[in-house]
Amino acid sequence: MRNAAVAATALLAALSLTACQSADDNADDRKKPSASAPSTSAPAAGSTEPAPDAKSPAADRTKQPTADAKPTPKGDGKAGGGSGPVTTACTDANTKVTVTKVSRPINHLLLTVTNTGSKACNAYHAPLLRFDDGQAATPIMDESKPQAVVTLAPRQSGYASILLASADGSGQNGGTAKTLAVIFAPRDGSGSIGAPHVLALPADTYTDDTAAVSYWQSDMSDALTY
């Protein structure tokens, strides 16, 4: 009986030891990393990309201007980025003026102004005229005012007509004139600009107090309608 009890005790001790060793082996297995699990802290083998830097996000860097960036200057909304060429006034210094007698309309003279300069000039308003030594300028025909200022390119001509006397003979203080002074008006139409062109009139040029002059015109036929 005693031998049987000793044997049973020995068997129980062996079984207990085996169970403990099995439990320890399972615990060790759980501590080992799986061979198939990917690493989250290192790049894959053969990769050339560096690990991401949490302190320098790429999205923020793309929004920053570079050191060489310069602001775009604001334009003035004009073609060429600036004002256009300045056109000077026509005066005695950059023009030639001639006067001729015409058959139609009757009692008329034709003034022709030609740009002799190297730049365009504007023939503003109407020519200011004085016959002989007259003190008052010849009246201007308001109805002849053009829609735009007459601009003359180099060697280009403009025109104005001169009514010498009314066709019905209603004018007074008539007489024969020998010379005509032609003076240019400035842009604002106040006073005159430059020196006068003094022209010899065609022989027997008769004028009275109904005399008048048209505005400068770009076309000769337009000037002779007044």
Rank of each mutant, 00 (worst) to 15 (best):
Tyr206Glu: 07
His108Gln: 08
Val113Met: 07
Asp68Thr: 12
Pro43Arg: 06
Leu17Ser: 13
Ala200Thr: 03
Ala69Lys: 10
Asn115Ile: 14
Ala177Trp: 00
Lys63Gln: 04
Ala200Ile: 03
Ala160Phe: 03
Asn3Asp: 11
Phe131Thr: 00
Pro105Asp: 07
Asn3Gly: 13
Arg2Ala: 15
Pro52Leu: 02
His197Pro: 00
Pro127Ser: 01
Ser103Asn: 15
Ser16Arg: 04
Leu109Gly: 03
Gly175Lys: 09
Val6Ile: 10
Asp222Gln: 08
Lys31Asn: 11
Ser192Tyr: 09
Asp29Ala: 14
Asp68Tyr: 12
Thr151Gln: 02
Asp133Ala: 12
Lys78Asp: 01
Lys178Ala: 06
Pro146Tyr: 14
Asp168His: 11
Ala13Gln: 07
His108Trp: 08
Thr98Arg: 03
Tyr226Phe: 13
Ser39Pro: 05
Leu199His: 01
Lys178Ile: 05
Thr98Cys: 02
Lys31Tyr: 12
Ala14Val: 06
Arg104Thr: 05
Asp222Tyr: 11
His108Tyr: 12
Trp216Met: 00
Asn3His: 14
Gly81Arg: 10
Ala37Leu: 10
Asn115Ser: 10
Ser214Met: 00
Ser190Arg: 14
Ala185Lys: 03
Ala8Gln: 10
Gln64Leu: 15
Ser170Ala: 05
Ser166Thr: 14
Cys121Glu: 00
Glu143Leu: 01
Thr95Leu: 04
Val149Cys: 08
Thr100Trp: 01
Pro146Glu: 13
Gln147Asn: 06
His108Val: 07
Ala195Leu: 15
Leu152Pro: 02
Pro52Gln: 00
Ser192Trp: 07
Leu201Gly: 06
Ser56Val: 10
Asp60Ala: 14
Ala136Asp: 10
Ser34Thr: 11
Ala79Leu: 09
